[in-house]
Design a protein around this nucleic acid. Structure first.
Lengths: 356, 356
DNA sequence: CCTTCTTATGAAAACGCTTTCAAAAATGTG
DNA sequence: CACATTTTTGAAAGCGTTTTCATAAGAAGG
């Protein structure tokens, strides 16, 4: 098919010939096996350098070695949340000399299964699944096959999937408590898709905080969304149009919060003087809005790293142990909230400033 | 090495046996060759479905077929600029059933050569290079090898590399003309790294616009940066500290512009009342700052798509023709600039609003 | 100096596929 | 109906590795 001449590539055989050894020996040198005399090892290494030898990963993995590549399935790219997680994954992968194969499902559940099938057919040594939409369709199979994988922000719960997740409930709970402490009583909530466990957890945190503070839950103050900006804009616009409009809004993601910002802007409401807004995630852009967004930080980068570490450990020495790591969230107070009828509370905290 | 049992995977031979044909025939069916009777073809297809056959890409490409994967080298991920380009690449790739192998160089020129070497050893059918730092080290070799590749935002110029790029000069020129038309005379410039051609082009556009309007170029108003936020913050802080401080600042990237925002904020300057700010790129976040950022739009998504299309065409029917596509930029007027000593000029334009 | 046990090495068999090559079957021609 | 084509098919040779297996060379033990 491909027209270029592949025969010009230098192979293990060329190296063997140049070094005057069998190609099996060259393979041993490449894989750093013992049972090679220093003398020959050196000759081989020299030959490899001289000829500019580069291993062919395809052949290697086909022959039973490892492929050195990890598959990553994400719903989307170019979104702050996912970008941060990928950065963490990438850092850990690079540190361990693994390569990354990226698949975007474009939020198509059916594509997920397809990709998983392809990727597990030798292409990769392990799989990272970020925000999977329909994992039940293939997780069983993966597990059966004993194929290493880790799920980040798992939709549901099962007992056999290694998982990385943040404490969404507590994060939401603390955010609402913070708003209540500032004197807010009518707090709107622009929720995420009810299909995702994290969205439900955040809603539950919201409800629990209200309950614990003796406030009644008002369904009119909760709008379903999908974590995206346009939907949040529409939702917030509706909330602002309410006769007894909320004085504060909790958005289920930072991206949603930006939609709420837009809606406030359009409704002529000043932030935080007229309405307090709080987000969730702490993506890098959260520090770039004006006013800077107060939000619940998920350690996205660290979650990516940790997931990768877990996966690589399992690949390199399979233990079969199923781990589940939950990360704490942290309230990052910036400038988008203030006490009800009070002064701005810009008590900038920690790494809330200009981000890198 | 890997402990799991691969023998349970169904191969072409299993399918052949189940269908009662030789495995060469199965291969023909997979690759959609002619010279297979409809009868046998159907039997093979049925067997594939029944057995759940999935092709092993490694073996396929090792045996001389195409691998169906494209390698992408980027300096970084999780950055708005790159995210947008990747989105475009991803869309085009998905539409053509290609997979993506992503490599991050972390701005290490030496890693670039290494990755290129690995990727061209059978792993991929073609290469996309985004913002390469040290391409001269391997572009010659790629070209010699006739390995398909396309460069996006090429550093320098050569006659043999297919390239996708935006008209940086014109973009910068128009931005400055716009500021001058608003009455600004002292216009600061937070530049990019002088190693990148696009940075130089933007600087040239800046100078030319001043010249054409009879304004003198003042080196004190130009600060070198690196397209990143912290550096831009520092640079802008210095500009604002000038005795005769600029009334407008042109930032070489949107990310830089955010640094300028921070600096203005810290210096107690209001945007756009006290200082007008204009960026470059139009990354999605540009519409989310308050005030929303006026900027020079590069069609990043489209550039990614186009680059990919160019690459795939060359892979599928090699022509050897070296194409270079330049994309027009567009000034997106939002709310971060206003006439000097005048009223705000919030003439929102086109897709400047809430982005998706 | 001759066994026995390591350690080092090469030959060769996979791995799962694509692709010749040649033979067999089907079709067309006079 | 014999012969020349064309289409369909299977056998087998790679592709560049890893890995097993058997052998050759060294070291250790008596």
């Amino acid at each position: 098919m491909s027209s270029r001449d592949r025969r010009q590539d230098v192979t293990i055989k060329d190296v063997a010939q140049a070094a005057g050894v069998s190609y099996a020996t060259v393979s041993r040198v490449i894989n750093n096996y013992k049972h090679v005399t220093p003398d020959k090892r050196e000759r081989v290494v020299n030959a490899m350098i001289r000829l500019g030898y580069v291993v062919n990963q395809q052949a290697r993995s086909l022959a039973g070695g490892h492929s050195g590549v990890i598959g990553l399935l994400v719903p989307d790219v170019g979104n702050g949340y996912i970008g941060e997680v990928i950065r963490g994954i990438d850092a850990e992968l690079a540190a361990n000399q693994y390569d990354l194969m990226l698949y975007t499902t474009h939020r198509h559940p059916s594509k997920e299964s397809m990709y998983v099938a392809t990727l597990t057919r030798g292409m990769t040594d392990g799989l990272l699944l970020l925000l999977p939409l329909n994992p039940s369709a293939y997780l069983d199979a993966l597990h059966q096959k004993q194929f290493p994988y880790v799920v980040i922000d798992h939709q549901g719960f099962d007992d056999f999937s290694p998982t990385i997740i943040a404490r969404n409930f507590v994060g939401a709970y603390n955010a609402i408590r913070y708003l209540i402490d500032l004197g807010h009583r009518r707090i709107g909530f622009v929720a995420g898709t009810p299909e995702l466990a994290s969205a439900i957890e955040r809603l539950n945190g919201y409800k629990q905080a209200l309950r614990d503070c003796g406030l009644e839950f008002d369904p009119a103050l909760v709008e379903n969304g999908d974590f995206q900006q346009p939907t949040a804009y529409a939702a917030a616009t509706r909330l602002f149009a309410l006769a007894d409009r909320p004085t504060a809004i909790f958005a289920a993601s930072d991206i949603s919060a930006f939609g709420v910002y837009d809606a406030a802007y359009m409704a002529g409401l000043r932030i935080p003087q007229d309405v307090s807004i709080i987000g969730f995630d702490d993506i890098p852009q959260a520090a770039n809005t004006h006013p800077r967004l107060t939000t619940v930080r998920q350690p996205l980068y660290e979650m990516g790293r940790q997931a990768t570490r877990m996966l690589l450990e399992e690949i390199e020495c399979p233990s079969g142990v199923v781990r589940r790591i939950e990360f704490d969230t942290e309230l990052i107070i910036r400038d988008s909230c203030q006490p009800l009828n009070g002064l701005p509370s810009s008590q900038t905290v920690g790494r809330g400033g200009a981000s890198v």
